[in-house]
Design a protein around this nucleic acid. Structure first.
Length: 571
RNA sequence: CGCGGGGUAGAGCAGUUUGGUAGCUCGUCGGGCUCAUAACCCGGAGGCCCCAGGUUCAAAUCCUGGCCCCGCAACCA
C-alpha cells in the first residue's frame, strides 16, 4: 500500500482552540479518510507547540506555570478532536522528552555541519513586551503596546545560516509546481525568496530572557527558538529520523497549514531540512481564514466562533460538510449561523436527505423493503450512469487536489440528477401500471447510486455516511466491492475498508440484490428558520407560499432557529 | 512606485492559464408532480463582468493606466 503522511499543525497553546483550529484538523481528517478510501496506508498527526515567550506570558497572566498552562491547553486541544470525529493517528507535545531529543539531535547535526554560528544581534527591545521591534513597527519611535521608547540592546545569539539555502529552495519551488499550493501561496513563498532578501535565522534565546524551551545541546546558556523546535514535531510523530516509520512515511509527507504559518513551513523548514541533509516534504497545502462578520476573528472584536457549540447546533456531520463545502480551499470565507443553516437545508435536507427519504419509502412500498433485482437498462439508465461516472470521477479528482468545495459540488450534481431521474421515470406511475420490472430497475439504479454517494461522503460526514450505508443494507465496515463477510475493518477504525472507492465510478452493480433496506429515512430533518416557521404557520391556507411575511410570534421569538438533536438520525 | 489576493445578477461564488452566445448555488416569480423532509421537477425575471484607453473580426478573459477593498511586511506561532 502506498504510504500517506499528513500533518495538521501542532497548535500553539497560548489560547484555547477556535473555529480555525477545528477547520484545519477536520480537513486533515477528511484528507486522511479520503486517502484510505483511495487505497493508501494513511497516517495523520497533530499536536501542540508549547514553548516560547508567549506561553510564559500567557501563563503569568493566568497565574500558573508554563507547564501547567501547556498541560491544560494541550489537553483541551486533544479532547476536542474526538468531539469533531477527527482521529489523528498520533498526537505530539513539544514539551515531551522524545521531542526534546529529536530537536537536540537535529540542532547538533546542523551545528556540526557548520550551519549554525554565534553572532550578535542588536535592536529596539521593549522590556514590557519582552521582544524586539523593527523600526517600521514602532509608532513615532515608541512601542505600540506600551507607548514607551524601546531600548537599543544587543545580544549574542546563535544563528542558522538560512540565507545560504535561499537559491536552492527557490529553484526547488520553481522545479516542483505542486510543492506549495494553491498557486497564490506558491507565489507568496517565491516572493519571500526574491533578490537576496532572506536573512539568517536567529534560533536561540538566552536563558536570562527565556527559560521555557529546549536547551541547546552545544550551549547550556540558551534555549531553542520555538519555530526551530516546533517544526521538528513532524519528525517526533514518526519516532525521529532514524525510525522505520520515518523511512516509510517521510517521503510521502504533506503538510496542511493556514496561511499565517506559511513562512515557517515554506522557508524555514525546507532550508532546515536541506542543512540537515534530509529530503524535503512532498507538498504543502495552505488554506485561508474563516471570517466572522466579514472580519478576521479576534477576541477584541468579539467575533470568535466557538467550534464545539457551533458543531452541535445542526449536527457534527453537517458542520463538517459546511466547512468543506463553503470554503474554497485557499481563499478566505465567511462563517455565519445563517449560512450554515441555509447550506444545511438546501444541500443536506432538501437534496440529499429527501432523496433517501423518497427512495426508501418507494422501495418499502413496491420492493418489499429489499434491494430489487434490476432488469435491462434503458436510455435513461445509460445516460444517468454516464453522468454519475463523471460526477464521481470529478469528486475523486477534486478531493485529491484539496478542492473540497468543487468535489462536493460535483457529487451534488449526481444527487440532483437522481432527484430528476425519479421525476422523469415516475416509478409511481410504473407501479400503478404494473410494470414491476421497470420499477425494480429504477429503484436499483437509485439505490446503487445512493450507496456510492454515501461511500464517497465518508471522509466528510463519517457518521451520516455510516448511517446511509446502513439504511441501504450495507454492513458496517463494509464498502463497495465490499460486502464480503469478513468485517475485518470494523472496530476501532470503523468505516469503509481501505480502497473502498476504487472502481466505484465505473461499476454500477455493486449493491447486493436482496439486502434489507430501511423502511424510511430522516437523515437531515429540515432546520426551521424564521421564514419557514412563518410559512408553516399558514399551511392550511392552501397555497403553501409564504406571500405575506406574517409574523408568528410564538415560533419566531423564542429561539429563532430550532436546534435539532443530530446525534441520531433515525432510520 | 514593498509583496500578495480580490472587485462578475439581490447574496455568495465559478469562469480569466488555452479570447468566440456570461455559468452555478441561494433568494425571487410562475407552473408541474405526489414516492418524499411544505420537499422534489420544469420554466421565467434579474448582469455597461470596478473605471478609462489599447490590441483583435471578436475581450470578463490579453496589454497600459487609474480607483476601491482585504491580507502580509521578516526574533510576531
Amino acid at each position: 500500500m502506498t504510504p500517506y503522511y499528513l500533518t495538521a499543525p501542532i497548535y500553539y497553546v497560548n489560547a484555547k482552540p477556535h473555529l480555525g483550529h477545528a477547520y484545519t484538523t477536520i480537513v486533515a481528517d477528511a484528507m486522511t479518510r479520503f486517502a484510505r478510501l483511495s487505497g493508501r496506508d494513511a497516517m495523520f498527526i497533530t499536536g501542540t507547540d508549547e514553548h516560547g515567550d508567549k506561553i510564559v506570558q500567557a501563563a503569568a497572566k493566568a497565574g500558573c506555570t508554563p507547564r501547567e498552562l501547556a498541560d491544560d491547553v494541550s489537553a483541551a486541544f486533544r479532547a476536542l478532536w474526538p468531539e469533531l470525529d477527527a482521529e489523528p493517528t498520533r498526537f505530539v507535545r513539544t514539551s515531551g522528552p522524545e521531542h526534546r531529543e529529536v530537536v537536540r539531535a537535529f540542532l547538533q547535526k546542523v551545528y556540526d555541519a557548520g550551519d549554525i554560528y554565534f553572532g550578535e544581534y542588536g535592536g529596539n527591545y521593549c522590556y514590557g513586551c519582552e521582544r524586539f521591534y523593527t523600526e517600521k513597527e514602532l509608532e513615532n519611535g515608541l512601542c505600540p503596546q506600551h507607548q514607551v521608547k524601546p531600548e537599543y540592546i544587543s545580544e549574542k545569539n546563535y544563528f542558522f545560516r538560512m540565507s545560504a539555502y535561499q537559491d536552492r529552495l527557490k529553484q526547488h519551488i520553481l522545479d516542483n509546481p505542486e510543492f506549495i499550493s494553491p498557486e497564490r501561496y506558491r507565489n507568496e513563498a517565491l516572493s519571500m525568496l526574491e533578490g537576496g532578501v532572506l536573512d539568517d535565522l536567529c534560533i536561540s534565546r538566552p536563558k536570562t530572557r527565556l527559560k521555557w524551551g529546549i536547551e541547546l545541546p552545544f550551549d547550556a546558556n540558551y534555549v531553542c527558538y520555538v519555530w526551530f523546535d516546533a517544526l521538528l514535531a513532524y519528525f517526533t510523530a514518526l519516532g525521529g529520523p532514524e525510525s522505520a516509520d520515518f523511512r516509510r512515511f517521510w517521503p510521502a509527507a504533506e503538510h496542511l497549514v493556514a496561511k499565517d504559518i506559511l513562512k515557517p513551513h515554506a522557508v524555514f523548514w525546507p532550508t532546515m531540512l536541506t542543512a540537515a541533509g534530509l529530503p524535503l516534504y512532498r507538498r504543502l497545502h495552505v488554506h485561508g481564514y474563516w471570517l466572522s462578520r466579514s472580519a478576521k476573528m479576534s477576541k477584541s472584536i468579539g467575533n470568535v466562533v466557538p467550534p464545539l457549540e457551533t458543531a452541535r447546533s445542526l449536527g457534527l456531520d453537517a458542520f463538517r460538510y459546511f466547512l468543506l463545502r463553503e470554503m474554497h480551499f485557499g481563499s478566505d470565507a465567511d462563517f455565519s449561523e445563517e449560512a450554515l443553516t441555509a447550506r444545511y437545508n438546501a444541500d443536506l435536507a432538501n437534496d440529499l436527505g429527501n432523496l433517501f427519504s423518497r427512495v426508501l419509502t418507494m422501495a418499502a412500498r413496491w420492493c418489499a423493503g429489499k434491494v430489487p433485482a434490476p432488469g435491462a437498462d434503458t436510455e435513461a439508465e445509460k445516460n444517468l450512469k454516464i453522468s454519475a461516472s463523471d460526477s464521481l470521477a470529478d469528486y475523486q479528482r477534486f478531493f485529491a487536489d484539496t478542492r473540497f468545495s468543487d468535489a462536493l459540488e460535483a457529487l451534488w450534481n449526481l444527487v440532483r440528477a437522481l432527484n430528476k431521474y425519479v421525476d422523469a421515470s415516475a416509478p409511481g406511475a410504473l407501479a400503478a401500471a404494473g410494470d414491476m420490472e421497470r420499477v425494480n430497475t429504477v429503484l436499483y439504479t437509485l439505490l446503487e447510486c445512493m450507496r456510492k454517494i454515501a461511500l464517497h461522503l465518508w471522509p466528510v460526514m463519517p457518521g451520516k455516511s455510516a448511517l446511509m450505508l446502513a439504511q441501504l443494507g450495507v454492513p458496517a465496515g463494509a464498502g463497495a466491492s465490499a460486502c464480503e463477510p469478513d468485517g475485518a475493518t470494523a472496530g476501532a477504525q470503523a468505516g469503509p475498508p481501505v480502497g473502498a472507492i476504487i472502481g466505484e465510478a465505473e461499476n454500477f452493480s455493486l449493491l447486493p440484490v436482496g439486502a434489507p433496506l430501511a423502511p424510511a429515512s430522516n437523515l437531515f430533518p429540515r432546520a426551521e428558520t424564521d421564514k419557514s416557521a412563518t410559512a408553516k404557520g399558514k399551511v392550511d391556507a392552501g397555497k403553501g407560499k409564504a406571500g405575506s411575511g406574517k409574523k408568528n410570534a410564538d415560533r419566531n421569538n423564542s429561539a429563532g432557529t430550532e436546534k435539532i438533536d443530530a446525534g441520531t438520525g433515525n432510520m
